[in-house]
Design a binder for these strands. Structure first.
Lengths: 340, 340
DNA sequence: TTGAAAGCGGTACCAT
DNA sequence: ATGGTACCGCTTTCAA
């Protein structure tokens, strides 16, 4: 039985030298044993003594020292910021982390909320990650990319709507979400189509392209698109629903299912029938949307596969020239239910 | 104009020695200037030359080397895993990160999905964080805590239902959520009270205590509690609703608002009126719950303030004895709407 | 005001 | 089969 933890506060952190001393060998040997270095043969008894010494001391290698010596790390840095993320996104994030760990990378999310683009890039660069995968929550500039690469990052990959010079871009064509939604509404005979644009910060990078896609969908038809600012609050939705008839709208693409549910309720409370008077389409295919009456039509988004992206990261790390500069990885299709 | 990025792949990462050479000074001087070391006076012209050289080379200090030399880091590690997190949680997380950064800590989330408890603790320990704040998504054992402390972590703080020996515990009394919900139902005259227990993995640590709290609420009354396993799928909810009358239940605490919405819809589809025949209470006070008819009653949970926790982390780091060992930081109260 | 040099904790080359 | 040792990038005495 050992003394309680208060004492351990004083006890210095054990190093490989401590392990070596206890095992009666050199630091080199400790390193060989604990890393199973293939190029060198260590006798079984020695191996055991080293392992036991390490165990006894509670030795854990110092990642910083290791990567300092090695001249590189296997850290993949994922910048994060406050974006109201849905199940799609968080599932993807977990897939990605899992897949990267399987490839022996250390995955670290770096909360970068409130940092300026280049300031953030410097902060990341200090950690000398071998790769940075920006999920598009934090804006990355060409200078930022340059800083990272100068600091040894082999791969800088952006996953978002817009491309950044110097970075590998996985274009998630958010515009397509808006386009298929509105194409669907046009096919259903709708002509005056509202498109909800959330006012919450952090959503612009999704909302803008979706609105743009909606506009593309009506180009060459006699339908028109009307942007509809909306806060995610009942009051805001009621206000919007209040002036609905004056705007003469007969359909709305509501950004996503949550905004759609909010707006649909407000419309119904204002006496506007769905889908007869106004059709409603959301996106993300949330389970909750299926519980409404009428059931909510939605755009189902198939996110990039995490494993796929992990492999891309790995291949770019191994050979920066290897991978294509840009790809589109966002399949979207409408799931019609009852609200459209 | 510089050459495109392909070349920079070859260019070695600039070090403080490179800056020193370019500025025509020693590495020591570079360090003094860039860190604004107060104990030493450097002439203004020299400072300028150093700064310009650093700028020109795109120099970014190497965090690992710095903390290796310093013997400590200011990294706070937050283990994360796949828990379907709501807006409450993610807001809290962002508050915490923001507050810690304001206190000059580097906050890093470490995705630990699928790692065993002690395996995870070792992985974290390799990074030599000065503090680990476990949000309860990854189980921490006393051995894990010991490993971390031996590796120099000044503060190991757990935020969860159960306490771990050696760690500072911020007890989030999930039991209380179940207790107030069921107390409310008892007060409203209900006697056979179902408690939804989600079958999704990762939720046990919330679901268990909530059920336990529900049991406490009926102790000493003539009401009873019935655990109801439920998957977050329509089919599962319909099954549960199908056998509802045979169970003779007149109320249900549905774990949270999402499960509540799912179940309430299934109950209504099965011809069971809410709240007349069965009362329903969720938790988290989601906006969407207010859109249903009847409006969903819920338990509003006031999470710990991020800034508060950040200050606790800081004070424990500065003096491990300073802070109280445990506190309860989860206020919960029922918001009655129409479903109960 | 500035520089030389030691040392943080590992790893890997070169001897032995 | 093992040990000695240089070195990774940076900070910080101590001397000049």
């Amino acid at each position: 039985m050992r003394k309680p933890t208060e004492q351990s506060a004083e006890r210095p952190v054990p190093t490989s030298a401590d392990v070596a001393r206890l095992a009666g060998v050199s630091r080199a040997t400790v390193s060989y044993v604990l890393n199973n270095t293939a190029a060198v043969r260590i006798s079984e008894p020695t191996r055991r003594r080293v392992r036991e010494a390490a165990e006894e001391l509670g030795y854990v290698p110092h990642a910083a020292a290791r990567s300092l010596r090695a001249g590189h790390s296997r850290m993949v840095l994922l910048p994060t910021a406050h974006v109201p993320i849905g199940p799609l996104y968080s599932q993807f994030l977990n897939e990605l982390q899992w897949a990267l760990r399987a490839l022996d990378y250390t995955v670290v999310q770096y909360g970068s909320l409130g940092l300026e683009a280049d300031e953030a890039a410097r902060a990341w660069a200090e950690l000398r990650p071998v790769a940075v995968v920006s999920l598009g929550q934090v804006q990355l500039t060409p200078q930022g990319v340059e800083i990272l690469k100068r600091s040894g990052a082999k791969a800088v990959i952006t996953l978002g709507s817009q491309r950044v010079e110097g970075a590998h871009a996985l274009v998630m064509d958010q515009g397509r979400v808006g386009r298929v939604a509105v194409e669907h509404l046009v096919e259903r005979g709708r002509r005056r189509i509202g498109v909800v644009v959330p006012e919450e910060p952090g959503l612009e990078m999704f909302a803008g392209p979706r609105l743009e896609g909606a506009r593309q969908a009506v180009a060459g038809t006699d339908a028109t698109v009307v942007p509809l600012p909306l806060r995610y609050e009942e009051e805001s939705a009621n206000e919007l629903a209040g002036g609905w008839r004056e705007r003469g709208l007969d359909a709305v693409f509501a950004y996503n299912d949550e905004y759609a549910m909010l707006l649909m309720r407000a419309l119904q409370d204002a006496g506007i029938s769905v889908p007869e008077e106004t059709a409603v389409v959301g996106s993300d295919d949330l389970l909750l949307g299926r519980l409404l009456r009428p059931r909510l039509s939605t755009v189902r988004i198939d996110m990039v596969i995490g494993r796929h992206l992990a492999e891309l990261v790995d291949s770019v790390v191994r050979d920066p020239q290897s991978a294509p500069e840009a790809r589109d990885l966002l399949a979207s299709r409408v799931v019609r239910r009852e609200s459209s």
